[in-house]
Each structure stands twice: as structure tokens, then as C-alpha cells.
Design a protein around this nucleic acid. Structure first.
Lengths: 328, 328
DNA sequence: ATGAAAGCGCTAACAA
DNA sequence: TTGTTAGCGCTTTCAT
């Protein structure tokens, strides 16, 4: 293993000069610096991260904790964060908690000590999660709590756009098929829907759920939606929408002829199924990028720079699953 | 920050006893051990990972490098590996290389020094990737090269089962829509198909490709498949199959009436689309689990325990996209 | 601008 | 069984 000592000997300087030349190049005379960097490259020197962390107390890496990597929602956020961290010269270690609050706390306790800060994406139990951090800098992603710094999307705005769209088509009774009660997104969506229908006093809202945020959840919800008399429905996510469409078809009902359906997330399945889903899209890579930037600001020297990140836009993507309500 | 010294003082022992009591409990007298663990708990002691790594040369964590976390194939492997690492009391840091060979090498160079070994999943450039490891233990996942330890699935066996299935339905001319030439899976599948058709001398194979491993690739391939005169087709993955079905439909052809389609991977979209895809499935979580186990064996003390992991089974999942060939 | 030297917190010989 | 001690490789005062 090549150490600072080897580089120092090769460059004919002391180890402190090597350290300086590599970490703070402007504090070293140009010719010296060049000799050092040349020697380092030649010998294939790689700084020992552990030693550097131990001494400097910084790791140059952030951690990202997500409930489920197989969920394209989180995978996309992770990719955005990863790319941004790389741009900033930081490492990013991703950990999956399998939707389990206990594993979540455990993973955080494991991760926190070897990072400079943690990105906590849709935590399943904010309380224990934050406790496990032991004061390490954190940014919540896709969730708000306790005045902790966070990056979120404008769920309420998305709901408003969905309702506007359905109302313009002529729908007057709209159902919502909700996801897990513990989900922050679900709460925000319900609130957003209520605000939206209040705005247009000719539209009624029927709230259903909670349902599992998967295909099976949509299948389970379908009959309730039909019974509710709604002519259009907004679902917790695209998978639920797909399950809904499936069960309706089994009952001889067609989308969008008999019922209009709006999904959420614009996951990549949304455009693959038949009919292609009208859905709500946020730029999730951007969520990941901004989360890293925000954490860098929060964890950085000027810790008071808690400039709030405004909620990111949610846009409506219109495809084939919404149309005029059935004639009566 | 609480250190071994604080714990030692509180328990009335030396720091080495603390270290031992926590790392190798059976080498410490029971009463002493209890006092130490009690003191550690009480003070909220958390071992400093960096110090431990620096001194012991072990990090207690593995790294997993994947080309694309948003690809459900890799996400599933990652989840399996993550769960297994946790069971073994190891950390697992996942890094996404965005399908870029340069980022791949960079990520590995970044990750390798702070882990005890690397899981390299479908590397885009094995050469530079392995070079970046600098001799650190590695296990290749979903790829074979240079006699490096690896965990792979039985692609050839899967192809055999697909051909058997299609032949039993009466198909005699089968096309393969291939993925990237750089893909190890693609090479193994082509070989497997050739072996399979050789076994049954009444079946012909038409090899097409390479095509992009996405929906667009399948759309691009569809017309070639039709022109080939094949009555059945195996595609590089499920997305390609979906694109294929889509383009066929646009041409007025129906699946499986006019053409039978077999996908690969059984990604979760396979059962969502219409028609639901017949496809080949491997237990990818198990791939992740075994990869961790194998790396633990390779990186462990008895390094000669290079027990080869036999290729994991690939099974055929029959759904609605395969049927009898069209009557002629 | 550069060097000498003191540890960061921990583990593992070696001694007792 | 337990304690003493010597660093792991690096950063960072403090001198020069």
C-alpha cells in the first residue's frame, strides 16, 4: 500500500507537504505541488479513507436511506442523488430498509457514523429514525416533520391539476383511492383534494382507503369505486390504478369509457399498460439532486443557511385513461 | 463522543478489555463482559468505525456496484444482497454507475478502500473495473470472466425450457431478439438457444439484434421478426417483448394469435401488460444473497474456499403471450 | 512555504 | 484472563 510517506520520499518533501498539496493545493508553492502530484500519480497513491476520516472527522460521503429500492419511485430519487453527489465529489451510500421501521433505525445507526449526513427518504418511523441519527445532519425527502429540513413535491398542486382536468372533462364526482395512512404523500394528497373540490363547488369528493400501494390494492378498491357513483378516480400510485383497471375489466367495465382513471408517480409502467395512464409526474431525479444540495448546505460550515427548498412542481401527464364521463 | 476510554473507566477495566468484550465476548470472563456491555450501553457508546477500519484493516461492509438502480433486475439483486449482508452483520453500500464504464471504474476506486470486498454486478467494462479494485476481493454477479469468482443464472437452461415450450406448442421457427453485444447474458442466451435447437433438429433459430434493451428496442425489432417468418420469438428482456407486442398491434397483428412471445427476467411489468407475458424467471433476490455469501467466503480467512456457486435455476413462467402457431 | 510532531479511536501483539 | 503498549495513515497545529 502506498502511503503519504512513500509519496513524500519520492517527491523529496515531508508528509505534511504531501497532505497539503493534495488537500489544499493553493497553500503549497506551485513547483512543489507539481512534484508531489506527479509522484502521487506515478506511485498510484490512493489516500486511505479510514485514516482521513479518523483524523479529520469528515468522511466525504452522504448516506441515503430508502424503504424499498425495487420501487421505481425511490430508485429514481436514488439515481438523482447519486449523480449529484458524484458531481460534488462526494460518495453516496444507499441503504434499503425493506419497509421495516426497526431495520430503518438500525441501518441509520450503522450508516450515520461513517457519513457526513443522511438523506432520509420517506421514513417509515420518523421518530426512531431521527433518534438513530444522534444529531447527525439530516434532510428529509418526500416528507415533512418537526421543522426538519426537507425536500418535497407539491402533492396538493398535483391534486388540483388532476381535479381541474377531470372537471373540465365534465366529471362532477371524483373518488380517491388512498394508500397507507402512515404515508406523508397520502395525507398531503387527501388535503390537496379537499382543497381542490372546495375551490370548485360543483365537484364532489369520495375518499376511500387505505389500500395497499400495489396492484392488489387497486383490485380491492375497484368495486368500492363503482359503488360510490364516481365517474372518475385518482389513485395513490400507478400500480393501484393498474389493479383498478384490471378489476373493472373483469366486471365488463372499460376505462376510460365507463370510468376515468388518474394515477400517480408516472412510473414507467404508466405508459406501458393499456390504456396508457393519465398520471401525475414529479421530476424525481431532481428531488434527489436537490436533496443532496440541501444536505450539503445543512451539513456545511454555514449551518444557518437553512434556505427552505420550495416544493417541487407536480405536473399532469394526460394519456388515454381519462375521457368524458359516460352519457347518462 | 464516547470512546473506549470512557467505557473502560466506567467499567473499571482497561481499554483492551473493552475492545475484547465487545468484539470477541468469549475471550473475556462473563462478569467482566457484563460490566463492560452495561457501561457501554449506559454511556451510549458507539465504536468509531473509521478508527476500527484503520487499525484492523476490515470495514465490516461490502460494496455493490450496479449499472442502473432503476432497472428492476438490479434493484432486486440489490435487495437480496442487502438483506443477506444485514443477516451477517455486515453493511452493504450500493453504488449506481449510470451504465457508464468510466464512472464504474471511478465508483469502484472510491468504494473499494472502505469495504472488505466488492460485488460487481454486470460490469460494463470488466477490465477497468477489476483494475480499479486494486486486488480487493471481488465476486462477479450475472457475469463470468477470467476465472473470477462469480454468481450467475442458468441462462442456457432457461433458453432450453423456452424452446421446449414453444416446440411443444408446435412452433418450428423461433426468432431471438438480442440485447447489447457487450452483455454477458446476451451471449449466454444465444449459445443456449443454439444448443437447444441443435437438440431438436426440427426447430430452426433466427438470431436478430443487437437491439436496445428497452421498449424502443422491441418496437425496432418487430418488423424484422415478422419478415423472418418465425412463429415465435424470445426477447432479451420483458421490455423488449412489450415493445414488440406494441408494434405488432400497430400493424394489425395480435399476440399470441399471430406470434408467440417469450420475455426474459419476469420483471414485474410482465404480468401487468396485455397479454401477460410468458417469461423466464430467476430468483434474483437469491442471486444477491448468494453473491454476499460467496464474497464472504472469498474475502474470509480460508481464501482457498473458492467453492464454485453453480448457476442458479431459471424457470419458465407461462402466461398469455404464447399459444399454438397460426394455422397455415 | 515547509517540516516536525502530536494524536484521532481503535485493535492486537506481547506481558504479566 | 487482563493490562500495557505500539502503531494503522492521515491531518493539523506549531515552529522554523
Amino acid at each position: 500500500m502506498v502511503t503519504v510517506h512513500d509519496v513524500a520520499r519520492a517527491a523529496g518533501v515531508s508528509i505534511s507537504t504531501v497532505s497539503r498539496a493534495l488537500a489544499t493545493p493553493d497553500r503549497v508553492a506551485a513547483p512543489t505541488r507539481d512534484r508531489v502530484t506527479a509522484a502521487a500519480r506515478e506511485l498510484g497513491y490512493r489516500p486511505n479513507r479510514a485514516a482521513s476520516v479518523l483524523r479529520a472527522g469528515r468522511s466525504g460521503a452522504f448516506g441515503l436511506v430508502v424503504p424499498d429500492l425495487a420501487n421505481p419511485f425511490f430508485a429514481t430519487v436514488a439515481k438523482g442523488a447519486q449523480a449529484r453527489a458524484r458531481q460534488r465529489g462526494l460518495g453516496l451510500f444507499v441503504v434499503d430498509t425493506d419497509e421495516d421501521p426497526e431495520l430503518e433505525a438500525e441501518a441509520i445507526a450503522h450508516l450515520a457514523p461513517q457519513t457526513d449526513g443522511i438523506l432520509l427518504c420517506s421514513p417509515r418511523a420518523v421518530g426512531s429514525a431521527v433518534a438513530a441519527l444522534e444529531g447527525r445532519p439530516v434532510v428529509l425527502v418526500n416528507q415533512n416533520a418537526d421543522g426538519l429540513p426537507s425536500v418535497v413535491t407539491d402533492q396538493a398542486g398535483g391534486m388540483l391539476r388532476a381535479v381541474e382536468h377531470l372537471r373540465a372533462l365534465g366529471h362532477r364526482r371524483v373518488a380517491y383511492v388512498g394508500g397507507p395512512r402512515s404515508s406523508w404523500s397520502d395525507r398531503r394528497r387527501r388535503e390537496g383534494l379537499r382543497e381542490a373540490v372546495e375551490l370548485f363547488d360543483d365537484v364532489e369528493l369520495v375518499e376511500l382507503g387505505d389500500f395497499r400501494p400495489q396492484v392488489a390494492g387497486g383490485q380491492a378498491a375497484a368495486d368500492l369505486v363503482v359503488a360510490s357513483g364516481a365517474t372518475a378516480v385518482v389513485t395513490f400510485n400507478d400500480l393501484v390504478a393498474i389493479g383498478l383497471v384490471d378489476r373493472l375489466r373483469a366486471r365488463g367495465l372499460r376505462v376510460p369509457r365507463d370510468l376515468s382513471v388518474v394515477g400517480c408517480d408516472d412510473s414507467y409502467v404508466a405508459s406501458l399498460v393499456d390504456p396508457a395512464l393519465t398520471t401525475l409526474r414529479a421530476d424525481l431525479r431532481d428531488v434527489g439532486r436537490r436533496a443532496v444540495d440541501h444536505l450539503a448546505a445543512v451539513a456545511g460550515p454555514g449551518r444557518d443557511t437553512l434556505a427552505e427548498v420550495p416544493p417541487l412542481d407536480v405536473e399532469l401527464v394526460v394519456r388515454a385513461s381519462t375521457a368524458l364521463p359516460p352519457a347518462r
